[in-house]
């Protein structure tokens, strides 16, 4: 997606669940995935789950606030926070890249601080305030950081973008006008396989009102 043809309003409309539309890419993939899974492992009853549910697995009921909405939800003790967000709450903006705390695609803010959601158990988030990429836009308006990502072509394939946005959001909340070096230090834990680091740093600095010399 190129910035010159990107229209946030159109984009939002396209993902509005109430809007009449053809099946989304996610629904299409989930349906296809279910067909494949059903032909190989009949017990995969819920195709949205990243892993089979296990009735015998220890479970705990937690209370977690996600983007200001409180969820009382029963989780398996082994679920990661990333799995809870994506599979339990349906917020699939948070991406799972490496699932081993190295790539940063799953970064969310936990009580205001960036963490790898694949590296936290969901039960550890009991009582926590979690913010995900879905919580950045307000009243239908992208955050200034998101706008700066669009203007500066910060996303290429886009898979790392939600994590980059969350790390940069935390930076801007602590340091409203960061330098390029401060942006690089804050984003060191977010890898970009497209290697679009320069544009990402430019976007973060621009969001703080500065420019990269």
């Amino acid at each position: 997606m190129h910035s010159d043809s990107f229209d946030p309003a159109t984009e939002r409309q396209a993902v509005d669940p109430d809007a009449p539309q053809s099946p989304s890419r996610r629904e299409f993939l989930e349906t296809t995935g279910a067909t494949v899974a059903a032909s190989t492992v009949a017990s995969f009853a819920t195709p949205a789950m990243a892993q089979p549910t296990d009735a015998a697995a220890p479970r705990t009921t937690i209370s977690v606030s996600v983007n200001g909405v409180r969820h009382e939800i029963e989780v398996e003790d082994r679920w990661t926070l990333a799995e809870l967000l994506r599979d339990g709450i349906g917020l699939t903006g948070t991406k799972i890249g490496c699932d081993r705390g190295e790539c940063g695609a799953c970064t969310v803010l936990m009580n205001g601080a960036p963490v790898y959601s694949c590296g936290q158990l969901a039960v550890w988030a009991d009582g926590a305030e979690v913010r995900t990429v879905e919580g950045l836009a307000r009243n239908g308006e992208l955050s200034p950081l998101q706008q700066a990502f669009v203007v500066n072509n910060a996303p290429q394939c886009g898979f790392c973008t939600p994590g980059q946005l969350m790390s940069a959001t935390a930076l801007l909340e602590a340091t409203p006008s960061p330098t390029a070096d401060q942006a690089r230090a804050a984003l060191v834990g977010n890898l970009c396989r497209c290697s679009n680091y320069n544009a990402i740093v430019e976007a973060v600095v621009a969001a703080g009102g500065g420019g990269v010399a």
Binding site: G101, G104, T107, M110, A113, P114, V115, Y116, G119, Q120, S167, A170, A186, V188, G189, N190
Partner: peptide, 9 residues
């Protein structure tokens, strides 16, 4: 050590 995401926890 590591990254901000690691150091925060």
């Amino acid at each position: 050590v590591g990254t901000p995401q690691i150091r925060n926890v």
